[in-house]
Simulated assay, not measured.
Amino acid sequence: MKFSFAFAAALSLSVSAAAIAADAPVIKQNALVKTADGRKVGYIDRILKDSAGVPTAVQIIYSGRFVVIPATTLSAAEKGLVTSLTAKEVNRL
Rank of each mutant, 00 (worst) to 15 (best):
A71I: 01
G80M: 06
S51E: 07
R65P: 10
E89L: 03
R65L: 04
Q59L: 09
L74E: 05
Q29A: 03
A71L: 03
F66R: 06
E89I: 02
T86I: 05
D37V: 01
L81M: 08
K79Y: 06
R46N: 06
I20F: 14
L74Q: 03
V67F: 02
I44R: 01
A17Q: 07
A21P: 00
L85H: 04
D45W: 10
G80K: 00
G38Q: 09
R39E: 15
I69P: 02
A6K: 02
L93Q: 05
G64Q: 03
G42D: 04
V67E: 02
M1R: 07
A87I: 07
A6V: 11
I60A: 09
I69D: 04
V26M: 09
S63G: 11
D45N: 08
Y62T: 01
K2C: 13
T86A: 06
V54Q: 02
I44C: 00
G80N: 05
A36I: 03
P25I: 06
K40V: 13
R65S: 14
K49S: 11
S14T: 11
V90P: 00
A9E: 15
V41K: 02
A87D: 14
A17V: 06
L13E: 13
D37H: 04
A10I: 07
K88E: 15
K49N: 07
N30D: 11
Y62N: 04
Q59C: 04
K28E: 14
E89T: 02
L74A: 01
F5S: 13
F7L: 15
A87Y: 11
V26E: 15
D37Q: 03
A9L: 09
S51G: 04
F66K: 09
A71K: 02
T72M: 12
L93A: 05
N91K: 09
A24T: 08
D37C: 04
D37K: 01
L85V: 01
L48C: 08
N91Q: 09
V33F: 02
I27Q: 00
Y62A: 02
A19Q: 14
K2A: 15
S14F: 15
G80Q: 07
A24M: 10
K88P: 01
V26C: 08
L74G: 08
Y43I: 08
A17N: 14
D45E: 15
S14I: 15
A19W: 15
Y43S: 15
I61C: 08
V90H: 02
L48V: 14
V90A: 03
V82T: 12
L48K: 06
G53P: 00
G53N: 00
G64T: 05
S84H: 06
L48N: 09
D37L: 04
V33Y: 02
L85N: 01
V82A: 14
S75Y: 06
I20W: 12
A36Y: 05
R39P: 11
A18G: 11
K40P: 13
D37S: 05
T72A: 11
S75V: 08
A6T: 08
V54T: 10
V82K: 12
Y62F: 07
S4L: 13
V54F: 01
L11G: 07
Q29L: 08
A19I: 15
Q29P: 02
I27A: 00
A71D: 09
L74N: 07
D23W: 06
